[in-house]
């Protein structure tokens, strides 16, 4: 099989798709804006539900793309693209022009900037961190407060920047609940003495083995789950964090002092993706992610023939789903090359 494909974005979806496309005999150009491949996967210490190290998956993906058919352009952004006849012409930020028969966008997601929820005090109070900051701590092995002490009481807030009309994100980011459970367990493992409290609106444990992890968190690790969204974070005289929530099941307001507060930041359409959507007149949904041409059998297809999507640029997804989505994109691209394009 012959033909050329440009894959924009070298995260999980981009790497998996590039590897599979190359195997099918297509020549692939993989463009990644960062110096290194891997995208958000590089930030993850352990993955849920089995707490496999993120590096393991990353190295599998890296092995995928060591292939003669793949040309790598890292540290290179995409400025825009045009479709001339059946050909795509992609302009890179450094001025290169790449021609291709098909394009696959795997531009991924951006983490919700938690400063936007000012009442949670991220960027204002020292000991308010995000889930991503915590993964970094797990990486370094040093879980501590700003003053170097080990936290003893830790709160986790679900749904920060997801399911929130106030920040314009009405959708559920899907991963935060299970991430919270995973991180709570890991915190408990790392700091034996600490107490962990999860503040949730709904526990959405729909994925394979998620519910089991939730149960484990309760039974084995004694994590407390409180149904109520945190509405305000402040500090007391001794600079300890104080959160306000309603314990909706008890029906009473709840105040709690905490050493560390972890915000489960949601996923948002990436800024790069939005730029490309604007430049290429690609349709986006109400949630600002790329809109697939069909929800059931066209989840990889766009409104432009020959341009495909894979991964979290279309909706929040976990690693498993992202890899599957990348593979289904590859099969769509191969079909396109074989029949539709001619």
């Amino acid at each position: 099989m012959t033909g050329s494909v440009v894959v924009v974005g070298g995260g999980t979806a981009g790497m998996e798709a590039a590897g599979q496309l190359a195997k099918a005999g297509l020549s692939v150009t993989l463009i990644e804006k960062e110096k290194y491949l891997g995208g958000h996967l590089r930030e993850w210490h352990h993955l849920f539900p089995d707490r496999r190290p993120g590096d393991e998956v990353l190295s599998y993906l890296k092995n995928q793309i060591i292939h003669n058919n793949i040309r790598l352009l890292t540290g290179e952004g995409v400025e825009g693209f045009q479709k001339r006849g059946n050909d795509f012409i992609i302009n890179t930020r450094s001025g290169d022009v790449v021609k291709a028969d098909a394009v696959l966008l795997t531009t991924g997601f951006d983490l919700f900037r938690s400063e936007r929820k000012e009442e949670y005090g991220y960027g204002i109070y020292d000991n308010v961190i995000t889930s991503s900051d915590l993964e970094e701590m797990f990486h370094s092995g040093e879980i501590m407060m700003k003053n170097g002490e080990k936290p003893e009481k830790i709160g986790i807030v679900h749904c920060v920047g997801s399911r929130d009309e106030k920040v314009g994100n009405l959708y559920c980011s899907k991963l935060c609940c299970v991430t919270a459970v995973k991180q709570a367990i890991e915190l408990k493992e790392a700091l034996n003495k600490c107490k962990v409290f999860c503040f949730y609106m709904d526990m959405r444990m729909g994925g394979a083995l998620y519910e089991e992890l939730y149960r484990e968190a309760q039974e084995k690790y004694g994590i407390t789950f409180i149904r109520g969204k945190v509405s305000e974070v402040g500090v007391n005289f001794s600079k300890r964090l104080v959160i306000k929530a309603e314990d909706t099941l008890a029906g009473r307001p709840l105040k709690m002092e905490l050493d560390l507060l972890v915000l489960m930041a949601g996923m948002e359409m990436s800024a790069e993706g939005l730029k490309l959507a604007e430049a290429g007149k690609l349709e986006i949904g109400e949630n600002r992610f790329f809109a697939a041409s069909d929800n059931h059998f066209g989840s990889n297809k766009s409104n432009l023939k020959g341009l495909f999507y894979a991964g979290t640029c279309t909706a929040p997804m976990n690693i498993t789903e992202t890899i599957s989505h990348a593979r289904s994109a590859v099969s769509d691209i191969i079909n396109y090359m074989n029949s539709d394009r001619k």
């Binding site: 609106m201 509405s231 305000e232 929530a245 309603e246 909706t248 029906g251 009473r252 307001p253």
Partner: peptide
């Protein structure tokens, strides 16, 4: 409303007395 309790948690009145908008 999904009864998340945000309103009652932040409530100025709920600070002092048993008033919960969620309830």
């Amino acid at each position: 409303c999904i009864e998340c309790g945000c309103c009652s948690a932040t409530c100025t009145t709920g600070n002092f007395t048993g008033f919960s908008l969620r309830e």
